[in-house]
């Protein structure tokens, strides 16, 4: 298969970027999107042109490293998959394909298609954990968790932290990412003690980092590779509102 690529090139964060045309020739239909880019890069190196920089690691859809906007959609066409799990057979021979980095204020571009998503780590750092020191845990079966809660918690915990939710959101909101963590921990009995504090500090950190607010567009849910439900955002709002009120009352 052959494709016309329009790829965003940008030497560094502070430089101006632009789309550059490349031809991808004789690409096997079984190749993944990233393998197609590998082939293009091999060709560029052979012509002594600097290859296109893009992030990827596990290439099996779980590490959350790959992060491309393909034809305007984070992770490209198709539901519930990362860029690395997109295969060229999904495109038509001769297609023109636009490739860009995730565009979010809080994810500054490092080079070409690579962005800095450490803001997501900072949100977790603000309280996305249960404070239990190694060695202090009680016997595991001493804490019963209903299967329903455990399964729902797992659905939220499946988030791979790629940031596509924020890239798809017109407000660049990281609400789905944050809601997934707050729900994962808040649904479990182990997570109750810190539940209020967690919601308040994670949401405030999110705001501080420059992510926008949620205005119920559901674009996040549509592109999420882990199929995290936007319903978890309601859970975040409930935890946050309750905690903020409690905090205000206590402050008086």
């Amino acid at each position: 298969m052959n494709f016309n690529l329009k790829i965003w090139r940008q030497a560094e964060g502070s430089a101006a970027g632009k789309f550059v045309d490349y031809q991808a020739k004789e690409i096997p239909a079984e190749a993944s999107f990233l393998e197609m880019l590998d082939i293009v890069n091999e060709g560029l190196i052979a012509r002594n042109e600097e290859p296109v920089a893009f992030d990827s690691d596990c290439r099996e859809g779980i590490c959350g490293t790959c992060s491309l906007v393909i034809n305007g959609v984070p992770h490209g066409p198709g539901k519930a998959k990362t860029t690395c799990q997109l295969y060229m057979r999904r495109f038509r021979d001769g297609d023109t394909i636009w490739v860009e980095p995730f565009r979010v204020l809080a994810f500054p571009i490092i080079k070409d298609l690579i962005v800095n998503r450490s803001a997501l780590d900072q949100i977790v750092e603000a309280g996305g954990y249960i404070s239990v020191r190694a060695g202090s845990a009680p016997e595991a079966n001493g804490i019963a968790v209903s299967k329903r809660d455990a399964d729902l918690s797992m659905e939220a915990a499946a988030c791979i932290g790629c940031g596509a939710c924020a890239a798809a959101c017109p407000n660049s909101s990281a609400m789905l990412f944050t809601a997934a963590k707050i729900s994962h921990l808040g649904l479990l009995p182990q997570g109750q003690v810190e539940r209020s504090r967690r919601a308040v500090s994670m949401v405030r950190k999110m705001d501080e980092l420059g992510f926008g607010n949620c205005s119920n567009q559901y674009e996040c849910e549509a592109v999420c590779p882990a199929e995290i439900s936007a319903g978890f955002i309601a859970r975040l709002n409930r935890d946050y509102a309750g905690s903020a009120v409690k905090e205000a009352v206590l402050a008086e």
Binding site: Y129, I130, V132, A134, G135, S136, A137, P138, E139, A140, N141, I143, A144, V145, S146, K147, A150, D151, S153, M154, A157, H184, L185, L188, Q190, G191
Partner: peptide
């Protein structure tokens, strides 16, 4: 000990209907 530690951290391990 690892299972105890991970369960306490909130790792959502698969559960039986009993909650165990």
């Amino acid at each position: 000990l690892i299972i105890d530690q991970c369960a306490a951290q909130g790792v959502p391990f698969a559960r039986e209907y009993s909650g165990l």
